[in-house]
């Protein structure tokens, strides 16, 4: 069963995001919301870790959370898709289950 992993912590402050990436299965999706949105940016100390995971999982970010933190979508790692809340809902429907990495 495909799972949507919802992450809401900055990878620069907490281990939640790394822990999530360590427990995903092939075909799962990861959605960054709230403070986790900052993890979508290319060229950070975290971006290589996320890019490695992107071989197995699809990665999304809530666009509103990125914009709220002063970051534009053109700075995102290639392959990450920005979604709005309607897209967030679609992801919860497309995946059979969800897990929040609080």
């Amino acid at each position: 069963m495909a799972m949507l992993h919802i992450v809401n912590k900055s990878p620069f402050e907490k281990v939640s995001f790394r822990s999530c990436l360590n427990h995903v299965s092939k075909g799962d999706s990861v959605l960054m919301i709230e403070d986790a949105a900052v993890g979508a940016i290319e060229g950070t100390s975290f971006s290589e870790k996320l890019k490695t995971a992107m071989g197995d999982v699809s990665v999304y970010v809530l666009g509103g959370d990125l914009a709220a933190r002063g970051l534009s979508e053109d700075r995102m790692i290639d392959g990450i898709k920005a979604v709005d809340y309607a897209g967030f809902v679609d992801l919860t429907v497309e995946n059979e289950t969800t897990q929040s990495w609080l």
Partner: peptide, 18 residues
Amino acid sequence: DRSEMAAVMAEQEVTLSF
């Protein structure tokens, strides 16, 4: 280990985190 934990998680129908 991590891969075994991931496999257990993948089987679940309702996952609650606190």
